[in-house]
């Protein structure tokens, strides 16, 4: 049943219809979500800035979800020696980095009018920044090793180390903020969200999920073709 996960041909057949489908669903949901978003009256507390939440929170949730996907793909590639899993991990990294960047920038733009500052070193933002550093390090390591199989394995080890490290980072920054109590108290987003905002919020989250799914599948397809092209090139050179 899960043959499409490790068999390249089955995967290509699956993604051929799955990728456009996910993309279409994501696009439709995004339009609907944004429409509902702007059709709702401005929030009593947050004013017009509430609209940033609809693109910030999905981005940050997805940045962590992609990280998880990358770690799982790395694990599968490392333990079961699946080249498709390696390709999946490699493909996910730029998407994760982009989403993390979005989360940071939109979060900053949300924070300035809300809490008066562009940046604050609380657990969430700081660990998001560390996450971005991880993605960049991952992509740097990938680019620095020429042998593909070796690069994939090294990156897989890094991903597994990183996935263990991130909760520790979150914990440490959280502790550090309790030490510096009184400097800032960050009210988490989504607290006391007015009911009129809930549907577009959920829709946007699913839209982002669909977008990631579609883009990830497309990128893995590109990876599969790239490897096939390289194999054919080597064969032709003989």
């Amino acid at each position: 049943m899960f043959a499409f996960l490790y068999n390249p041909d089955r995967f290509m057949a699956f993604s051929r219809w799955a990728a456009p489908l996910f993309g279409a669903i994501a696009a439709v949901l995004a339009v609907v979500g944004l429409w509902l978003d702007f059709a709702a009256p401005p929030d009593y507390q947050q004013g017009y800035t509430i609209h940033v939440m609809f693109i910030h929170v999905p981005a940050s949730m997805m940045s962590l979800f992609v990280y998880l996907c990358l770690a799982v793909a790395s694990f599968l590639g490392l333990v079961f020696r699946q080249p498709l899993a390696d390709a999946a991990a490699r493909a996910a990294a730029p998407l994760g980095a982009g989403l993390t960047l979005l989360a940071l920038v939109t979060g900053s733009l949300w924070g300035k009018p809300m809490w008066g500052t562009w940046w604050v070193w609380d657990a969430r933002l700081t660990s998001e920044l560390v996450l971005l550093l991880f993605y960049l390090g991952y992509m740097a390591l990938q680019a620095a090793i020429d042998d593909e199989a070796r690069a994939a394995r090294a990156c897989a080890i890094l991903a597994l180390v990183g996935v263990v490290n991130l909760p520790i980072v979150v914990f440490s920054v959280d502790w550090w903020n309790t030490l510096h109590q009184g400097s800032t108290l960050f009210a988490p987003s989504g607290q006391g969200l007015a009911p009129v905002y809930v549907p577009p919020f959920l829709i946007m989250i699913v839209a982002y999920l669909g977008a990631f799914g579609a883009l990830w599948l497309v990128r893995i397809r590109a990876e599969v073709w790239r490897r096939r092209a390289n194999v054919l090139a080597v064969r032709a050179a003989r």
């Binding site: 009256p41 800035t49 910030h56 939109t106 733009l109 300035k112 009018p113």
Partner: peptide, 16 residues
Amino acid sequence: LYLDAGKYAPYVWPAY
């Protein structure tokens, strides 16, 4: 659609 961002415009629209 409520599209008038008022004073928050320089934050909301760049985010989008």
